[in-house]
Nucleic acid binder design. Structure first.
Lengths: 216, 216
DNA sequence: TAGATTGTTAATCGATTAACAATC
DNA sequence: TAGATTGTTAATCGATTAACAATC
């Protein structure tokens, strides 16, 4: 089963399954079905069953899936059955929001260091972390063997910082800068750009205030 | 050309084209080609030409695309050749970061109102906006005829706020809450959940610190 | 048992790519 | 003109769905 290459599009859905399972577990549910998951996620139940079947047989005919068990399996598959230590670069408003965000810790991640190049910010506390000088980034990240980083710096510094992160041994970057980063093979980048998401919706919005006035 | 339904996956790429074009324009370039765009975006040039051809003929054989012109066309298609007024709900750390973010204004969006239900935050300034009570949200948003909103509230309030936004006439929501929102047909939702993005990368990361020790 | 739901196959659907005539 | 690049078609590739035997 693990033998043939699993499509990235399948991998990309697994975190969504995990999130829905967590929700169900929080509601006290113990068992679910591909139909229930499908309804929550607005995809077909066949797709969910097929996705899961790449990795094993996690359900029981006639019953469905044990939520706790399926969570554990997906966490293992996605390698979030552990805690990844993450570096954060950028201690501006966005960096602060990320540093304070409570949602990382129980889903596999913890920010363990914050860097900035602004002397006014270096030394200040962000949550329970002291902001360190970006000049220590490379040696520091390498010494701690960090593999993941979040990038919350202005667009015009993003590539430069990305280069440093790669040099320091970072393998996965979550970038909030609205530019495409160039990185070597084997380094993974995901982007979050709120404007892109907003622009994906405006296409579908009618032009006029009174959209019930069809044709006018 | 506008007659047959355009696949959503095409629409989803247009903002990325727009972003790359903006970058090129900022660098002083005036003309580009599907090959150049493709290289930047790591997709095939044929795909770019095909995507654009859904909407018209924007290039010139032998020459390529006038960057400024293509930007204008894409902005028009995505309806971001205007400024959309956006409501922001949630004045916590994330809300603050969004309120201060400079990247909205020149890409079609402006936050014009901020709401929170925390008495300690109501009345405070967030950037140049005064935080208003969430109790005014519905009448306020409706009166201003706002069509878009950003949701930066804790997960356990997100659905409730989403319901209010829909009631107030909001047609598109960008949600930062890590849960699936249920909304009526005709209301569009996009999600930003950094943990999902992180979890999409860990699958590909080796387990061990010393990943050069193959097999051990 | 009867009912429900899985895992899986084959069919369908849709998206991407290769190729090239048109043409700037 | 010669070279370059578009817009578009047909072929390929990949993803989703429908259906159902297996089985809990």
């Amino acid at each position: 089963m693990r033998s043939k290459k699993i499509p990235d599009i399948v991998i990309r859905r697994l975190p969504l399954y995990l999130r829905t399972l967590a929700r169900m577990a929080a509601e006290g549910k113990e068992i679910t079905s591909s139909d229930q998951l499908a309804e929550q996620l607005r995809i077909s139940s066949a797709l969910i069953r097929k996705d899961l079947s790449y990795f094993g047989e996690f359900g029981k005919q006639g019953t469905g899936y044990q939520i706790r068990f399926l969570q554990e399996q997906l966490q293992r598959i996605l390698k979030v059955d552990r805690e990844w230590e993450v570096a954060l670069v950028g201690a501006g408003n966005l960096g602060r929001a990320l540093a304070h965000y409570k949602g990382f810790c129980n889903r596999g991640f913890r920010i363990v260091a914050v860097y900035d190049n602004d002397p006014a910010k270096i030394g200040k506390m962000l949550g329970n972390l002291k902001v360190k000088s970006a000049s220590h980034l490379v040696e520091d990240v390498r010494a701690r063997r960090l593999k993941m980083a979040m990038l919350a710096v202005p667009a015009d510094h993003a590539q430069e910082v990305a280069d440093q992160l790669v040099e320091a041994g970072i393998r996965a970057v979550l970038s909030y800068a609205p530019i495409h980063l160039t990185v070597p093979d084997g380094v993974y980048v995901q982007y979050i750009d709120p404007v892109v998401h907003l622009q994906r919706m405006t296409y579908y919005l009618g032009n006029r205030k009174h959209s019930n006035l069809k044709g006018f």
